[in-house]
Write a protein that binds this DNA or RNA. Structure first.
Length: 260
DNA sequence: ACGAGTACCTGGCAGC
DNA sequence: TGCTGCCAGGTACTCG
């Protein structure tokens, strides 16, 4: 499922390939997302020139020279492909010699949505530091993993990277946010930045069947460096456990030996 | 303000 | 083999 590194991988490829191009056609598939601008609104993008692609958290932003933006969220099964169609195409557009397809089997993706309020991004010069993390965790009784995945507090982390960051910092996912020591908070800041940076450098994570592929159909390489997520044994050599209660509605893995 | 729960959706897979 | 039913997960919503 696309988190910050996967979305950034998509952004880089689309930007490099499509910046400066003009939209010549736009088509909407069926059934579409339950939230998508009407086809008539999308059709008004025909003739617009693509200034480039930017990103905020997990949101991909298509910027036009006219000043208009189209905000895209890939949900958990969204994919963008260049010149390669397939099932579950929700919309597509043509520009130059390329056709860009937006696929989404589970239809959790969104298009044209307004960018919501998002927290700072780990690794960006954005204010995500130990002071900030201490401030948002102070007094919180909810599990630290749920807080890390709350996009209003921290932008970009989903289940995979939050799981990995907590493992790297030696902190159990179910710990109350407010229970972290200063030392743990500092370790967690560093590990969030590290796991996301490595994910971006390696072109995202392509786990077994939850296959992320970039717009050119290439898998990421970060899965070879995943320590916990989707594994039975951690990279530390210990058997992993799932938290008794799901966190934020999803199962959470940790190493009972290395994470306190 | 906070935390917990649920709807949204469907491919894939475990279990019978 | 073929069926059922459950699980995965990001966001937005409701409820206490």
């Amino acid at each position: 499922m696309p988190e910050l590194p996967e979305v950034e991988t998509v952004r880089r490829i689309l930007h490099e390939r499509l910046a400066g191009r003009r939209i010549t056609a736009f088509a909407v598939g069926r059934p579409t997302f339950y939230r998508l601008p009407p086809a008539s609104a999308l059709k008004t993008l025909i003739g617009e020139s693509i200034k480039g692609f930017s990103r905020r958290g997990k949101y991909l932003i298509m910027e036009f020279s006219s000043g208009r933006d189209l905000v895209l969220h890939l949900g958990m099964s969204g994919r963008v492909t260049l010149n390669s169609s397939g099932p579950h195409v929700r919309f597509q557009f043509e520009t130059g010699n390329d056709t860009v397809f937006f696929h989404d089997a589970r239809r959790f993706g969104r298009v044209g949505c307004a960018l919501p309020k998002l927290g700072p991004e780990p690794g960006a010069a954005d204010g995500f530091d130990a002071h900030y993390l201490r401030t948002i965790l102070r007094g919180r009784t909810g599990p630290v993993k749920a807080l890390l995945m709350d996009q209003k507090l921290v932008a970009g982390l989903g289940n995979i990277y939050a799981t990995e960051a907590l493992f790297a910092a030696g902190i159990r996912p179910g710990r109350a946010g407010g229970s972290l020591t200063c030392d743990e908070t500092e370790r967690l800041v560093k590990s969030c930045i590290d796991v996301l940076r490595r994910g971006v450098e390696l072109g995202g994570s392509t786990l077994n069947d939850e296959s992320f592929l970039d717009p050119l159909g290439r898998p990421g390489r970060n899965q070879d460096y995943v320590s916990v997520y989707g594994r039975k044994m951690g990279s530390c050599g210990h058997a992993l456990k799932a938290t008794r209660k799901p966190i934020g509605g999803r199962t959470s893995l940790y190493c009972p030996n290395c994470q306190k």
